[in-house]
Design a protein around this nucleic acid. Structure first.
Lengths: 191, 191
DNA sequence: TCAAGGATTGAATGATGGTTCAATTCTTGC
DNA sequence: GCAAGAATTGAACCATCATTCAATCCTTGA
């Protein structure tokens, strides 16, 4: 029974994610999520006090997954240049793989309460990257700079550069290499 | 009478802007805008078919003003380095002067129909900047690169770097110089 | 001054979609 | 097998605003 409850909760989150990936946040009425999860509308409220709470968790889950994937890819590299390339390639690659979901996480209009979670998502990326930048500065691979600001700007650049391609469905073949060059230069990676 | 109509329309747009600057888009119910403009709720619909149309125009007006200010500041400079500094300083300076309005224009959750206008706003900035970058590449001041992508990334970086300070109300004293360094390096301005 | 026609009013309407809850179904301990 | 209690259902409820419109007020031309 306890297990059933937990499973039900998981199913609701999974359903919400699935609908987001298919129709964006716009398609995520509570009724639609419930139907996809195979429960009644009212049952959603046994697990989450409000819709905003549900989607805060959905955003948190999806974001964590993205940040983890990027962190994992970056951890495989050694130089700061390689790490940044891994960050950009992983971020962009995953976004282009699930464009609707990426758009929802990055830019789609959502409830203000959910938007706060989006800021946290972006900050999590920024903090991950700030760590790499700080390490690069410490090791002399990068010139002195404010790692926090550089990381924030970089996340903005990455997100903005993806919004167009996500709307269009594809990125031009040169988008990602160009972005890598831009960001390497911005951080001062020695050429 | 014709003049009165036009004036009324202007007053409604001005009222909407004023409320946005004071309480954000969230505070902009049609009733609130009408009251601020000194007209009845229904009168708003003599000038705009829907609320979304009204705010599309409000966003367009406010955005145009911002882009114009940045373009004017940049036009006073000659080198690409100076131009980019002017862009960043003007953009950030104006945003920090009217943080609530800047936040509404850049990042606040809005009606999807209005969000489209926001994309246009960002693209207008990107196109302005792309022109400078292309000129810089042509003149040899900048290394070869995709001006569109660089400009898009740059707008993202600028906007993202401002969102935090806008929420907090102020930027640290080093934010703008750091941002200038970051962007100069990103574009490959020779040091 | 006065009537015609347009402008203005603001309370009523309506659509949307999140939230509730009485009725029902299931689970569990005896 | 059975009752107590929890979980589930989904149709009804309700709050929020955008939108409408019949009544009223102004402007204008004669």
């Amino acid at each position: 029974m306890r297990a059933r409850l937990i499973a039900s909760r998981e199913r609701i989150i999974a359903a919400a994610l699935e609908i987001m990936a298919g129709h964006g946040y716009a398609g995520c009425s509570v009724a639609a999520v419930a139907e996809q999860a195979g429960v009644a509308t009212g049952s959603v409220y046994r697990h989450f006090p409000t819709k905003a709470d549900l989607f805060a968790e959905v955003f948190r889950t999806a974001s964590q997954r993205e940040v983890d994937a990027v962190a994992r890819a970056a951890a495989l590299e050694t130089t700061i240049a390689e790490r940044m390339s891994a960050v950009i390639e992983t971020f962009s690659g995953r976004a282009l793989q699930s464009p609707r979901l990426a758009y929802a996480l990055l830019a789609e209009p959502v409830d203000p309460a959910v938007d706060a979670e989006r800021l946290a998502f972006r900050r999590a990326y920024a903090e991950l990257i700030a760590g790499y930048v700080a390490a690069g500065v410490a090791s002399g691979e990068l010139p002195p700079q404010d790692p926090e600001l550089a990381a924030t700007a970089l996340v903005g650049a990455l997100a903005e550069a993806m919004v167009g391609p996500l709307a269009a469905g594809v990125a031009g073949p040169s988008t990602i290499p160009s972005l890598i060059t831009f960001i390497h230069r911005a951080l001062g990676v020695s050429p």
